[in-house]
Amino acid sequence: MEELRSAMEEHMGLMADLVQKLSSELRSGMRPAYDNFIGFFHAIDWKEPWLISLLTFHVVLLIITIFSRKNTNFQMCLFLLTLLGVYFAESLNRLLGDNWKKFATQNYFDPSGLFLSVLWSGPLLTIAILILINTLFCMCYLIVRWKKAELRHRARLSRNKQD
């Protein structure tokens, strides 16, 4: 019995060490990512008119997405347009990188496209995911309605056969 107890205590000690190491790695692992995000956030001049317009565009698109949630055909068109916006992000990054002096105070458009991915593709993909989730809910609701109608029809047929 004593051997079992000591084995359990040893196992619990090992588990506690593993949990402690994992939690310290997670805490130290998130700090560099957080520092990079804060550096990215502070490197941008958020008062530039084109950035304000871009953010306004995304907010308006989100509002349109929310208010048109019952119109599935419109939402599918919106879904395709958002995905096309993401698809052409690389070309857009190249175009904006070549002409940044005409509308911006600094060149945000690096060859890897990080800036445009975060401020253009990220919100568009988020909106596309919202549309996709809404479409799945609509489909589930439609399937339930269809099944209820089918059951009502079968019940009517069975009542007619009994008469």
Rank of each mutant, 00 (worst) to 15 (best):
S24D: 06
L114D: 02
L18K: 14
L124T: 01
N134W: 02
L130N: 06
I133C: 02
F37G: 00
R154N: 03
D98C: 06
L83K: 02
I64F: 15
W120T: 07
R154T: 02
R154W: 03
V60L: 11
M1W: 04
I143E: 09
V59Y: 08
L78V: 09
M30H: 14
L55H: 05
S158A: 13
G113H: 00
T65S: 05
R152N: 13
E9N: 10
P32Q: 02
W100S: 02
R145M: 12
N36D: 15
L130D: 06
L54Y: 03
N73M: 05
F67R: 08
T65G: 05
I63F: 08
C140V: 04
D163E: 07
T65F: 10
K21A: 14
A16M: 08
A128D: 01
E9M: 10
R69L: 04
F37H: 03
S53F: 08
L114E: 06
I131L: 06
M15Q: 15
N93I: 04
I133P: 01
Y141F: 07
N93D: 02
R145T: 12
R69M: 08
E25G: 01
D110Y: 04
T82K: 13
W50A: 12
F67C: 12
L119M: 09
V144E: 08
A16H: 11
A43K: 04
E3Y: 15
F67V: 15
E150T: 06
I63S: 02
L14V: 05
D17G: 05
E25L: 13
L83M: 08
I127V: 11
M8H: 08
A7V: 05
P49A: 06
H42Y: 07
L81M: 12
R94P: 00
S121H: 00
M139S: 07
F74P: 01
S53Y: 00
L84D: 04
V86T: 08
T126G: 15
A7I: 08
W50R: 02
F40E: 01
L96A: 13
N160H: 13
L83H: 03
S117W: 09
K101N: 12
A89M: 14
S121C: 03
K70S: 14
K161V: 07
M1R: 04
L96P: 01
W100D: 03
N160D: 10
K147A: 08
H58I: 03
F109E: 02
V60Y: 00
M139R: 12
N93P: 00
C77L: 13
V60D: 02
